[in-house]
Write a protein that binds this DNA or RNA. Structure first.
Lengths: 215, 215
DNA sequence: ACCTCATCACTTACGGTGTAAGTATGTCAA
DNA sequence: TTGACATACTTACACCGTAAGTGATGAGGT
């Protein structure tokens, strides 16, 4: 009769993974241990193994969670804008969990959660007139740029990104007196890194390259 | 008198790091522990701390070792070819130690060993006529692409790369019946990944984009 | 109401990790 | 010879992932 009531508060795989995502986001990837994760959900370490195969499966599950949150934008009539929108969406999903991002990027993005994003990406490039094969290449190029820029962004502390005037001044001085001409000449720009701007610049280069070779 | 003779075979920071690189390359990053590394150089774990601050310093040192091995190519009269040559050199240095590559790519490439490569990269783009600021952006875009493609390459086993006919057939079948049209249509190309080709494709897109916006 | 059985959290244990702290052994300069 | 210094070793601690075994709880059939 009362099968919809669950008096026993039982653990589920989903609860474990969500707690894992929270823990990683709060304390970093290296802080995730089976014992701490278990404590997080009010249980002993070994109990987790009733719901996940091992620690690696936890990491995979967390990756999936983030990947599934990519909010795929609607297509427009402008293929270039569609590429920007989709790349932005991927980037936003990753940056929503910055401390988890290294995990997501260094595992192979082959989970089922990545399929809808792949489909949307391919559709966008196909709509631009590219053949199926080149669509795959184009998508992979954009993805590589995304991974490279995101990894740089979450790897560097807020130091390199933001408004750390004093640190940037110091780096600039070091570079300027490195004895290397081109580095000295660009030291002002090397000393800081606006990740959003770098990402946009790189993406525009790729889109420009695609536009140039569009059938 | 005989101060050039070293009867006592003493450990050095360099020996430790070289042994670390070998160990990582032989058994993977996760296999590197202070105890195993010490055993490798015929010493107890704690003795390493006379030469390196901690494990993280070991990883940094190994990264440096690889970065220092980038063989910077001579400039030609063709800026596009120069970009290709330099990117190829970076890629080759990384792939010379494939199991160490994840280490190199996920740490910030800010070591002194990276300065000559940076200088060469900036010189190349400057020679193409770009301003100092845009040179930095262009270099960072190429680097992001390199990091993204290399990480994909060393992350996927030989499975995804090479001539694993049966695995690729299976992946193709799964993708073809995914119910997603664009994925099904491109399943042949999604099921495999020729990393060299993907890298070249992406690099040509960026070079194309640069050519289009050259002053 | 009772028994059975599967589920799932618990306990214990093992071999591994990084490294703090203290000790011993050698090589040099005075 | 003596002291100082460098460097290797030993011990110890708190933590890790997980294999193996144990016990409580709740559901379903009789």
């Amino acid at each position: 009769m009362s099968q919809d009531v669950r008096p026993r508060e039982t653990l589920t795989r989903e609860k474990v993974l969500c707690a894992g995502l929270e823990l990683v986001e709060r304390s970093g990837v290296e802080a995730l241990s089976m014992r701490k994760l278990a404590a997080e959900v009010g249980v002993e370490a070994m109990s987790l193994y009733n719901h996940v195969a091992n620690k690696d499966a936890v990491l995979d599950g967390i990756t999936d969670l983030v990947l599934a949150r990519v909010d795929i934008p609607a297509a427009t009539s402008d293929w270039q804008q569609d590429i920007r929108n989709l790349a932005d969406a991927f980037r936003a999903a990753a940056l929503a969990y910055p401390r988890t991002t290294p995990l997501v990027l260094t595992r192979q993005l082959q989970s089922k959660s990545a399929l809808p994003v792949t489909e949307a990406a391919l559709a966008t490039v196909r709509r631009a007139g590219f053949a199926p094969e080149d669509s795959v290449h184009a998508m992979r190029a954009v993805l590589a740029l995304l991974v490279g820029t995101l990894l740089r962004e979450v790897g560097s502390g807020p130091t390199f990104s933001g408004t750390d005037q004093v640190g940037s001044r110091k780096r600039e001085a070091v570079l300027a007196s490195s004895g290397l001409d081109r580095i000295a000449e660009s030291s002002r720009f090397l000393a800081v890194c606006d990740h959003q701007r770098e990402y946009e610049f790189g993406l525009e280069l790729i889109i420009g390259g695609l536009a140039a070779r569009r059938p």
